[in-house]
Write a protein that binds this DNA or RNA. Structure first.
Lengths: 140, 140
DNA sequence: TCAACATTGACGGGGCGTCATAGTTA
DNA sequence: TTAACTATGACGCCCCGTCAATGTTG
């Protein structure tokens, strides 16, 4: 680890739990571009970069279009930078709000699907139990 | 709807919420094969077939290898049929039990990821709120 | 007969896994 | 210097979406 708070891709992969390939892919699509490179071409990620990757990782399960996620993260960066005109700021705020609403929808949907999967597992276990008893019945 | 309890693919798609293309793909891979066909070649699904599709749909979110799911569903069918020797029965029971255990693992993992995504959404909302206040601050 | 439904290809695409080959860094 | 890391292609795979051209059903 270098002292200047810059990490190369392998360290970031370990810290985030994303694969190196995935992180590279996210750069290809503009989703998360490293702040710098070494002279030799190694990608260098700041803590902010890493945090962006973590957010992406967490939202990924909601299966939102990656491009929407990119747009929103970019919008947030723009908003925080303050370099934005009143008119556009209005738009960005609405865009982010819309995204958040959609994310919450997906979250509820996922929750329902998780519950459905639990039910399916219960059913499998019951069939399994039924078979075990059947076996005992025949052997006893 | 025919009276003999057989459904064609479109009806099954509606009932299960799976797309026709997906159902067809599941047949290609042997995951869920319709019990019959019309003379003309239309797929015909029984209620059992439909139920199998529903289980698959519910387990899908757990992101288990589709082939494992297929193997287990086949194993359960075999067990229920009773046409199986003692030795093999033993094996099938263990196989299903292993699958169920794995499914539960995945379920817990998914639950954790869902919670992480909720956290991420909360964070987005907070940034959004921060920006709103900033706007009010500047305009007031 | 006609409208609605289905069939089999085939191509395409997102999100990476997985080489292969070669350069970089400590 | 050398071991460990990284770079850029490129191909492949899964899970379907989406035509296109054609046949089936009621």
């Amino acid at each position: 680890l270098r002292k200047d708070g810059l990490y190369q891709i392998g360290e970031v992969a370990e810290r985030t739990g994303l694969s190196i390939r995935t992180i590279r892919y996210y750069e290809e699509t503009g989703l998360a571009v490293p702040s710098g490179r070494t002279r030799g071409g190694f990608r260098l990620y700041t803590d902010e970069d890493t945090h962006r990757l973590e957010i992406i990782k967490h939202l990924k399960i909601l299966d939102l279009p990656l491009e929407d996620t990119k747009d929103v993260l970019d919008a947030l960066d723009l908003l925080r930078s303050g370099n934005v005109e009143h008119q556009q700021q209005e738009r960005l705020l609405k865009q982010v709000a819309g995204f958040v609403a959609e994310a919450q929808n997906r979250s509820r949907l996922l929750s329902a699907r998780l519950e459905a999967s639990r039910q399916a597992i219960v059913e499998l276990r019951q069939v399994l139990l039924g078979q075990r008893y059947a076996r005992l019945g025949r052997s006893g």
